[in-house]
Amino acid sequence: MMAGSALRRLMAEYKQLTLNPPEGIIAGPVNEENFFEWEALIAGPEGTCFEGGIFPAKLLFPPDYPLSPPKMQFVCEMFHPNIYADGRVCISILHAPGDDPTGYECSAERWSPVQSVEKILLSVVSMLAEPNDESGANVDAAKLWREDREQFNKIAKRLVRKTLGLPPAE
């Protein structure tokens, strides 16, 4: 095993998340041999077009966690302005203060060791509920979200059914 302090902190967070799981979020290491790769299940927030869906994602932690942020990637098909086509999540909390891929985030919203897996996942839930259409991770989704909400909702509903293993409606 590498970096002991990162491992200890990840274990502490795992324990915390298991003892007091936040609503709609389940997360933990893929296997207990490797604490640097986690798997998370996120329930689509109620009252949004993602309601009812269960979205699997994986989190990759750097060996110098928590000094550097983890990377998060959905492993199911997603259609969302802040999620790249390959599932990578683009939110400011996951960006180290030094690099600025989008060029407009202020450093107050960036990663710092105070953040945690739980906070990241909660941010992702609120990102699902309220996309930031200024960040161009998925330009098509951002455009649709802005201009044709009905169509966006339709796509989201289809994805929700897909994550649940249901056949598409109609």
Binding site: D64, L67, P97, G98, S107, A108, S112, V114
Partner: peptide, 17 residues
């Protein structure tokens, strides 16, 4: 020790920046 590591990246308070 934790602060030292953090200061090598950022010279801010991790909590309040």
């Amino acid at each position: 020790a934790c602060l030292r590591l953090w200061f090598q990246r950022q010279q801010t308070c991790p909590t309040c920046r």
